[in-house]
Amino acid sequence: MSAKAFKQPPALRTFSSAFVIIWLIVAAFPFLWTLWGSFKIELDFFSKADWRSALTGARTILEHGSSFTGDGYQGAWVQEEFWKAVLNTAIVCFFTVAISLTFGTLGGYALSRSTYRYTFWLLIIALIFRAMPPITLVAGYLLPFFEWNLWGILPTTIIVLVAINQPFTLWMLHSFFQKIPKELDESAKVDGCTQFQAFRHVIIPVMWPGVITTGLFSFLLAYNDFAVTSMLLSKENQTMVPKIASFLGTTQTEGNVMFAVAAVVSATAPLFILVMFFQRQIVSGLTQGAVKG
């Protein structure tokens, strides 16, 4: 049948286009608005008198002679030392993703190749762990971590985030490895490889698409986490999200809310770039579980 038969009548077409445009505005406008406003002073971004001054920057011009100012960024990055939080986030994300993927590929591969019944139970346990809010575990961490002086430092948080990540990583990689034909590594084993050698020489070269997709989600989990990082990191070691939360407590009264605005924009920018480059992988990752079930 020609595509013509599927063509929508004009009224419906207009309606659906309008709907998409409205959704786009709802989805993207808050970010653009905040990005624009982060270069203004507080009196413009939160303007009692005239909402348009957030666009034109009327008071910013009065104060700085130009309608853009980097004061918020300067205050956040230099004065409040947001760069430290950025560095910490980079460290936490890098190691969390690297360790999660190493553990996850080994485990996921084993789960996809073993035919015994306990693989099912392991996956079910992982699913239960995946469903638990991370904050419910924090109460269990605090006492031992204080006792052994592990609280507040980055390595502890990294390993906790790795563990919290594992159930999801296992599920993703398990279903990905199941799509790689078993014959590949079976034939390697027939040729005399051990299971590990088969994994090393046959599976690793072809697993990267799945690993990259899973890695993206591990990264997002580590990057976006607030519950665990805010409870387990000391003030000096805070990552970006808890740091932004702490801005709210201390600076809202001093009228330095623009620091937080600038920090929020700074923390969103990497995600923007990430979506730009990895849109396809993110979409495929989101739908992977769904299409299977």
């Binding site: 997002l220 923390a267 969103t268 995600l271 993110i282």
Partner: peptide
Amino acid sequence: FSLLPMIVSPLI
């Protein structure tokens, strides 16, 4: 653009 609201951390 649709992915943005989901991808940013809930706090942000």
